[in-house]
Nucleic acid binder design. Structure first.
Lengths: 198, 198
DNA sequence: TCGTGTGCCTAACGATCGTTCGTTAGGAGG
DNA sequence: CCTCCTAACGAACGATCGTTAGGCACACGA
């Protein structure tokens, strides 16, 4: 990780990793400070509350997922318009890229947002639902035009999204496969899961 | 949930649900007591520590997964010996049954065991690895004899296991589909993921 | 009727939590 | 030199954490 621009951003970066490893509730403000060689209370010069740090991380991660999905759908529409398989492929690649670009941040978006207070949690839930609906919509399109076909579209969608979110759990930047290869395999597995049975 | 046999067991049951909803670290001993209409310290008449409760839950869940997998593999060997697809089908059904029989307990086994201390966590990790290796072994068998075939067996195994563990996240006992139907669909999706491409 | 436990209570402990506060060290600009 | 700003410090607050200790009430066997 390179030297970040602002101190605030540095705090969020180490907090992402700690939240990912131990979870939000099990990570104390002093833990975050210690990882920056600071005293716990010193963080409050840059941050208004612990939950605020979590909220910022979640917001930024959500923004990255949304922007990547926007670009993916535009790309799919530009190359093979109306093709659900192409849309899903681009969405999967975009998702994997966002996760592998910053695993800590992505994990917080996938799991730790539940620790937010009720109002903020509801807002995040809404964004998550909207994001996942992109996938569901293209899956529904594919069923409608015969590209896809499965006994239960709802379960298939859930399984696909669970698989994609799971990447944040097991991806290892030092691992055997580069992010691009992982994306290739996930595209293959996803389309195989969705496509009409023979 | 019926009236449990012992007070100790009742404590573990409500703790399972709370750990599932909020996580171990975010659940206080007094939260568990309140759910039983008791005072926090009163729990210590039945329990030696908070981590001990978590440990018991994890152990019991692990035992249920292992026993179900034992029976599944025996059943597969009795009906269609040496058939990897049959073994995987039985293992998937067994896994889904264990999860749906007690979602709280299963979720704790899938996620919250990380909150255990180092020695206990290592022991659980070993059991989890052994359990997951059953799946990987049958997948490897299927590749060896041509039943299965995919570009990257390691990723395929990981995806399958992520999918199965994910059931604990989204399964809703009040939901549209009964547990048996969910198992049917997961068997279909799993085998479709694994089988040799056309 | 009388112990004798079991099951839960309240009080309280030390540790740690998130957070507020007053202050200090060091550098930039007039 | 004086001033102001940034960045951090250490003390301390009230709340809550997991846990221990001691006592009260009610059931049951003698």
């Amino acid at each position: 990780m390179v030297e970040p621009l602002s101190r605030r951003r540095a705090i969020e970066d180490v907090a992402s990793d700690l939240f990912r490893e131990r979870g939000y509730a099990a990570t104390s403000v002093r833990d975050i400070a210690r990882a920056l060689s600071m005293q716990g209370p010193s963080l409050y010069a840059h941050v208004t509350s612990k939950e605020d740090v979590l909220s910022s991380i979640v917001d930024r991660a959500a923004g990255r997922f949304e922007a990547a999905a926007d670009a993916a759908e535009a790309r799919a529409e530009a190359t093979r318009p109306g093709d659900p398989a192409q849309a899903i492929e681009q969405l999967v690649r975009a998702h994997v890229r966002v996760v592998t670009d910053d695993v800590g941040e992505a994990t917080v978006f996938v799991h730790e947002w539940r620790a937010l207070g009720p109002e903020r949690r509801a807002a995040v839930l809404e964004r998550r639902d909207a994001y996942e609906d992109r996938f569901r919509r293209h899956i529904a399109d594919g069923i409608a035009n015969g590209t896809f076909g499965m006994t239960d579209p709802a379960i298939a969608s859930t399984v696909v999204l669970t698989t994609l979110n799971g990447v944040a759990t097991w991806y290892d930047p030092e691992g055997r496969l580069p992010a691009d290869r992982i994306a290739d395999h996930l595209v293959e597995l996803t389309l195989r899961t969705l496509e009409a049975s023979r």
